[in-house]
């Protein structure tokens, strides 16, 4: 059985909003997503972090005190690697991840989050857990003007509607 994105009928590729040359932001949905939450057990924070840091081929994102989202690694593999140093909880289906890039990505995200996203304050690789449009969001800076953002699956459609409306003034491309 194929994985079915909750946004398969909602997100349509194309160019939308203000038409002032190049789009201000480019939006896409990361699907199928592989995202596992890793929470260090009591007294194992250091060990868990070290194991994760040593991992190859997966992206480790801070997600709270002694908590991480690991993108691109199977839950079973992580369980094997971390043993009882951490709890491993698969959220690949529980969260929907958006990619937001382009020169106006910060201006767009600032309409939702109080986190200061200036490159000096929120450099590449930094993550934040915050609230955007009344929805809990996990945000990571992945490139110069690039971000990845995930929300609980059930909110994804509502969040997408908000996000795209806020992007209208910049003009946006959906891939």
């Amino acid at each position: 059985m194929l994985r079915e994105s909750p946004l398969k009928d909602v997100v349509r590729a194309g160019r939308y909003g203000a038409d002032k040359g190049a789009p201000g932001v480019t939006l896409s949905v990361v699907h199928p997503l592989s995202l596992v939450m890793v929470i260090a057990r009591k007294g194992k924070a250091k060990a868990a972090k070290e194991s994760l840091t040593a991992m190859r081929g997966a992206t480790v994102m801070w997600a709270g005190p002694d908590q991480y989202y690991v993108k691109g690694a199977e839950a079973a593999a992580l369980k094997k690697k971390l043993g009882d140093a951490a709890s491993i909880i698969d959220q690949s289906h529980g969260r929907v991840m958006f990619r937001i890039s382009g020169p106006k990505s910060r201006a767009l995200l600032a309409k939702g989050t109080p986190v200061d996203l200036h490159a000096d304050e929120f450099p590449i690789g930094k993550s934040a857990v915050t609230q955007m449009a009344h929805v809990g969001a996990h945000l990571t800076c992945t490139g110069k003007d690039d971000f990845e953002l995930s929300v609980f699956r059930g909110f994804s459609e509502s969040f997408w509607e908000w996000l795209t409306e806020q992007a209208l003034e910049f003009g946006y491309q959906v891939n």
Partner: peptide, 16 residues
């Protein structure tokens, strides 16, 4: 923007 339909976020079940 939080008016009408978007007064609060809508949450949909995976079986929606």
């Amino acid at each position: 923007p939080f008016t009408g339909k978007h007064f609060q976020p809508v949450r949909k079940s995976p079986l929606h």
